[in-house]
Structures are given as C-alpha cells and as structure tokens.
Design a protein around this nucleic acid. Structure first.
Lengths: 170, 170
DNA sequence: TCTAATTGATACCAATTTAGTATCAGTTAT
DNA sequence: ATAACTGATACTAAATTGGTATCAATTAGA
C-alpha cells in the first residue's frame, strides 16, 4: 500500500524549495539538484502545477518558478488530487446498477469512512506547515551543534534557513 | 489514490461469503458467482489465503473453502498486508544514507503519522464486523418491506441471512 | 547582438503493478 | 466412471508509474 507516489512526493518537495525561496524565482535545475529529483520529471510536474495555479513561472535566463499562493493554503490533499487523482472509493458509488452486490456496499461504506479520515489528515498538512517543521528541525540541529560533516551529503537543510549557495545566477 | 486494490477487495468479499456460510464448505465457483469475482482470479486469491492460514479447503467434489479462523480476528489490515504489501512509507526510512535530504524527512514524518492513522482505522474493521453490518443492513431492508425486485440484480444479500440457493451441491 | 540558461510543449520509453485467463494434474462424492 | 472440485503454475493484457529526450521560444547579460 503506497500512500504517496513519487510525483506527489516530488511535487511537495519542490514546493518546499519554492516556499523557502520567499518569492524569488528558482529554476527547475536548482530544485532538481537541491531535492534530488530527476530534472525532466520535475519540469513536467512544475508545468502541471502552473496549470493548477500553484506556481507561476518566468521564462528565459534567470527565469524559474515561484509560488503563486500562500504556502499555508496549499494542502497535500490538493497535490494528491492533482497527481494521484481524486480518492477513488470505487465504481459502484455512482450506482450504475444500484449496487448489485450488498457485500460490496458494506465494505465500501467502511472504505469511504477511512478515506475520509485520510483526507482529513492530509488536509491538515500544508506546505507552510511542512516548511515550519523543517525550520524547527534545522533549529534543533543547530542548537545541538552537530558538525556539518555528520549531517549527510547533498543536504537540503538550506531550503528555508539560508539561501542555497547554488551555482546558478538569479 | 486507491486505498484497496481489486484483489484485497475480492478477498474481503470472498471471506464474507465464507463467514456467512458458518463453517460449511463453499466452492470457489459459488463464491465467484455470488460476489461477481472472476473465477480463476478468485482461486488464486483463495490459495494465497490458505497459505496464510485464513481459510482451509477440501478437495474433490463437494469440496470448497471455509474460514480457518474466527471472523472477528481477521482484520482488513491483514489482507492489505497480504495483497498490497506492508504499508510502505518510503525508502529513506531504513536510512541507506541517513536521510540525505531533510525536506524528505519532514514530509516522511507526516506520512508516517497518517499511515498509522490509516493502519489503525483498518485495524478496527474485521470480517466479523463487516458481516454484522451486512446483517444489519439486510434487517433494515427487510423491515422496510422493499419488494425484492427493486433490490438490484445478482444480489448477494443472501450471504449472511439465508443460505445461498445456488445450483451446486455441498 | 550573440549566447547560455531557461521555460513551454510533447513524444517516447521501460519497469512495475494490476487484473484477468488458461491449463493440466490430482482428489473425491455420488 | 465421472463430474465437480482443489493444487499449482504459466501466461497475457492493460494501466500506472517513473523516467528520458527533443525542439521551439524566451530572456538576461556579456
């Protein structure tokens, strides 16, 4: 059972990068490197996000993407909806033939209930909240004074606390 | 987002049929007809259930399957585990490289929390409970005195309240 | 003005998962 | 004997998922 697919996962992390950039344009390349997401894959995801009005873009050199909405209003449910389709309970729902099978309905009732729970839980999680969690985590690590060498390679800690010292110009 | 795949769905319904049969052997053919599940597909699912000790079988004519455990102890989570693998949070978990990406971890933390919620919810649902729901639903319908013609074709209401008037001998 | 970095838009591909079918051998009630 | 079963397994088709490649248009900056 897989709750989030790669594309949703990638999308969320890309949005975290953008949220950390505070309105500045960030290129797909930079996000790709920062979050370790396949470049072309990411670009497709970003275009999708533009279509849904989550981000906006600027073309050309020094172009890139930025959030088009307040990160606190971007919920993980919305991203699941975009990349994994709406929570599908199953066919019978719209009673093609008014529930030919009772057992199916009883089961479906339970599934619906649980899916609502899942929905509600994911509803609580916004990009803004995740970013805050990230900052809190970074603060905790900084306070503990852990040497940067032990913090794992290709670290994306920089996302929210400091500007990425990436190579590209913007 | 699909919470249950066909095989889990089928498996649950097959178990409901068996639970309704109160220890008598029910053939794969009968279940297939009753629950509208592709016959050969169902057979494979049943063999899997045997392997996991959920059901037992009797070979030969008048053979079939029956529950090997109390329906109240058979939880939907268990079936999800069998047919959809364990709830996969994601790779990083077992820290191949001690979480190379912080954003990933923050996100993962939320996912884990939610997956636990899902787990707990499905844990509550047993075959026994579903069967009780089914009986309650049937009782309600019977009380309302809805003529059987309006109850949809290929009805599996019979699962728990009366013995299926199927053609096969058992 | 040239150029390198960038997005827009698609088309394509490979691996995996999901769903379903087919077959043949062995068992057993009647 | 035989028809109705299960055991075991091989096969296939379709959908989904994850990822790559390409080419055109745009733009900042040297």
């Amino acid at each position: 059972m897989k709750v989030l697919t790669k594309n949703t996962d990638y999308a969320i992390r890309a949005l975290l990068s953008l949220a950390g950039a505070k309105g500045e344009f960030v290129s797909a390349r930079a996000i790709s490197l920062e979050q370790d997401i396949p470049y072309q894959f990411l670009r497709r995801l970003l275009q999708e996000m533009i279509r849904y009005g989550l981000v906006s873009s600027k073309e050309g050199a020094a172009g890139g993407f930025r959030l088009a909405r307040d990160p606190d209003t971007i919920r993980v449910t919305e991203l699941i909806g975009i990349y994994q389709g709406p929570v599908r309970v199953s066919e019978c729902m719209f009673r093609k033939q008014i529930c030919a099978n009772r057992a199916r309905c009883v089961l479906r009732h339970e599934i619906m209930r649980i899916e609502q729970v899942v929905q509600q839980e994911f509803e609580k999680v916004t990009i803004g909240k995740l970013l805050a969690d990230l900052d809190a985590q970074n603060a905790r690590i900084a306070a503990a004074g852990i040497p940067s060498g032990e913090r794992g390679e290709s670290d994306a800690l920089s996302v929210s606390t400091k500007k990425p010292e990436r190579t590209e110009k913007q």
